[in-house]
Amino acid sequence: MNTTPPIVTNGDLLIAEPFMGDTNFERSVILVCEHSPAGTFGLVLNQLTDIHLGDVIEDIQPDLPLFVGGPVQQNTLHFIHRRPDLIDSSIRLREGLYWSGDFDEIKRAINVGTLSERDIRFFIGYSGWSEGQLDAELSQKAWIISSTSADFLFDTPTKEFWRGVLKRMGGEYKSIAHYPVDPRLN
């Protein structure tokens, strides 16, 4: 039996198994922003909040929605985007998908209308794993690893994202996408 966990790279998606049992990550899809032997940093892509960027940052128009990036340090703000032409110091995760960058440039671009929610997402908090923790969870098959395009990530409605990623993977994953939240109701 092979217990070696699958290899995770920056820009990969971690898709929660349908019956994970962890309320922080139920039916979540996490974008891996940084994975190294020291640990992993990621952002939950499909947990929208009722909070807007203007609730936590002054002088920003229009008001963009905030997502819960994870249960760790929910007093921090993070962002991903697909506009490195507007945002210096961005970190490339994969073709067309970037993390972080110059926040003053982001504020200017949002305020003048050259950057919209079609191209950037903001997150409060993050998801983090210490050294070896994610590998242990992968060995226990708590997560499915996949990838996606920036277009799919930004253009797919939040409520459909978990199912949408699995459906695009096809095969057995397409079936998993239709599992009910509570298997007793099947």
Rank of each mutant, 00 (worst) to 15 (best):
I7E: 15
I7L: 14
V8E: 08
V8P: 05
V8I: 15
T9H: 14
N10K: 11
I15K: 03
A16M: 06
A16E: 02
P18M: 07
P18A: 11
G21C: 00
G21I: 02
D22A: 08
T23N: 09
F25S: 05
E26I: 11
R27Q: 13
R27N: 12
R27Y: 07
R27A: 09
S28R: 07
V32K: 08
C33H: 03
E34P: 01
E34M: 07
H35R: 04
S36Q: 11
S36N: 11
P37K: 08
P37H: 07
A38D: 15
A38P: 00
T40G: 08
G42E: 03
G42L: 00
L43P: 12
V44H: 03
N46P: 13
L48R: 15
T49F: 02
T49E: 09
D50P: 02
D50T: 12
I51S: 12
H52R: 14
L53K: 10
G54E: 10
V56P: 01
V56T: 09
V56A: 08
I57P: 00
I57N: 07
E58G: 12
E58F: 10
E58W: 00
D59R: 11
Q61C: 05
P62R: 13
P62N: 12
L64S: 11
P65H: 10
F67C: 05
G70M: 09
P71R: 02
P71Q: 08
N75T: 14
N75W: 09
L77E: 03
H78F: 11
I80D: 07
I80Y: 05
I80M: 06
H81N: 12
R83H: 00
S90C: 05
R92Q: 14
L93K: 10
E95V: 10
L97H: 06
L97Q: 06
Y98C: 04
S100D: 12
S100E: 12
G101S: 08
D102F: 04
F103Q: 10
D104K: 14
D104Q: 13
D104V: 06
E105F: 05
E105I: 01
I106P: 04
K107F: 02
N111C: 02
V112I: 14
G113F: 13
T114D: 12
T114N: 12
T114S: 15
L115C: 07
S116M: 01
E117T: 10
R118Y: 06
R118D: 15
D119T: 03
R121T: 00
F122D: 01
F122P: 06
I124W: 05
I124M: 13
G125T: 06
Y126G: 03
S127D: 02
S127A: 13
G128F: 09
E131M: 07
G132W: 07
Q133H: 13
L138G: 07
L138C: 09
S139K: 12
Q140S: 15
A142T: 04
W143L: 09
W143V: 09
W143A: 12
I145D: 00
S146T: 01
S146A: 15
